[in-house]
Design a binder for these strands. Structure first.
Lengths: 245, 245
DNA sequence: GCCGAGAATGAATCCATCC
DNA sequence: AGGATGGATTCATTCTCGG
């Protein structure tokens, strides 16, 4: 297990590889905080099997040229369920008792993910919406203005003196290097329930927002990412000093 | 099918009885907008006297503490699923093509309800949170500050020129005659996607907030309620004139 | 530096066409 | 027949840029 990047002083490690391969080697995790590929993007099978750029970026956008596709986003619901149960179980094995799981998901896969969370051995504790205030409008129906956190714990809840709000409002970020990149403020919210009894793990690191927020909040952190390009981007972001909050 | 209450001029009807008995007699419904009993309590109480842990204790002691929440609700969840599929199917039969379904639910039953909606023949279209702003704070975990709308349609979406927001913020009502009573503003939000091609149906009317909002928005409406006491309360609320919005 | 107008954007969605 | 492709559509918010 050779890290792609390591910052011993801050306790930050990045592994370049598949989460399912790397997870068995990890331990001491207090919080699994991540944003897995949703395998979503449309009611029709054809839509879902599209490349991520075609699925998630509006056709008239110039972003098509500047962002990259990512892989592993084409599972159907049953294999998404099975795959998610696998990485969730792997992450739970790396976690200490009382550890917290926080995973983002969209509305379409939310019910499947809550099943996977429990199948992976976590105690499902709830849902919390991230409100982007206004999604793309939809004539005759509710716009999908939110993404969701599904959260749980390894065994009993490790009660400590934090009271994270059950909903978080924050508009989506303008400048992004990854299609699904989330604002750091959102990730800091997601990290709030994690007790300081170990490190933060993000098995689907992407451009490294989770690790960046973890570092700024004083957590050691481990990231796993399949794409070398994003490993590089994340390493650059993490090489910077702690940011003032 | 004798109505408990009827206002011919406004097209408001209340039936006193069980939804599953009344639904087969109805038709011309453009919107099913309701707030069903969430827990499988009341009529569908499972056998909770079973020691849930005793049934599922595994020899892997590390998993015992993770199982309490997972297994506790299983039986109730399955009967909730079956029962909800029944009334959802019945309501769909009473609905016109393009009709909209809007059902409130809490986080715990949300995944079960999305299954039931599809089992009942509706096209599941999404989720929309109602944020109550102040959930009960919870040490070490996200407060549950939201209830959720699960919505869908009977066949293709009947596009019309409304753009309902995908999230609605409104504090829970102070004065209530029913435990689960929701503010009228919330119900008016829930009614927004319903096209004016028929009536509003609430199979679990309670104190009649849905019908009151429907009347104020110019919809004919049908309510069903098992408890005579709430039939009476709702009839009183509906006897009042249309309220200014 | 502030303000207002105009342009760009969104982990979309749906459908007609084309292979 | 069924999967892949491309275009049209929507508006509150955010961003850009000029005055």
């Amino acid at each position: 297990m050779r890290p792609y990047y390591e910052d011993t002083k801050a306790g930050i490690v990045i592994y370049h590889g598949d989460a399912l391969d790397v997870l068995p080697h990890l331990s001491g995790v207090a919080g699994v905080v991540t944003d897995p590929p949703y395998s979503s993007g449309g009611a029709f099978r054809g839509d879902r099997t599209n490349a991520t750029l075609a699925k998630y970026i509006s056709t008239d956008s110039s972003r098509q040229d500047t962002l990259d596709d990512f892989t592993g986003d084409n599972r159907d619901q049953r294999s998404f369920m099975a795959w998610a149960a696998l990485w969730l179980n792997g992450a739970r094995n790396a976690a200490v008792p009382g550890a917290v799981l926080v995973s983002f998901i969209d509305w379409r896969q939310l019910p499947t993910l809550t099943d996977s969370v429990q199948a992976g051995g976590w105690v499902w504790r709830g849902i919390a919406p991230w409100s982007k205030k206004f999604g793309r409008p939809r004539a005759g129906g509710f716009s999908s203005a939110c993404e969701y956190i599904v959260w749980g714990t390894k065994g009993p809840l490790h009660e400590h003196q934090v009271y994270p709000p059950g909903i978080f409002e924050c508009s989506a970020e303008g400048d992004r290097e990854h299609i699904a990149q989330k604002p750091e403020a959102v990730m800091r919210w997601a990290l709030q329930p994690v007790p300081h009894i170990g490190s933060i793990l993000d098995p689907f690191m992407g451009s490294g927002t989770t690790l960046r927020a973890a570092k700024d909040m004083g957590f050691p952190a481990i990231g796993i990412e399949m794409s070398e390009k994003y490993c590089e981007i994340a390493a650059k972001r993490l090489a910077q000093e702690v940011m003032a909050l």
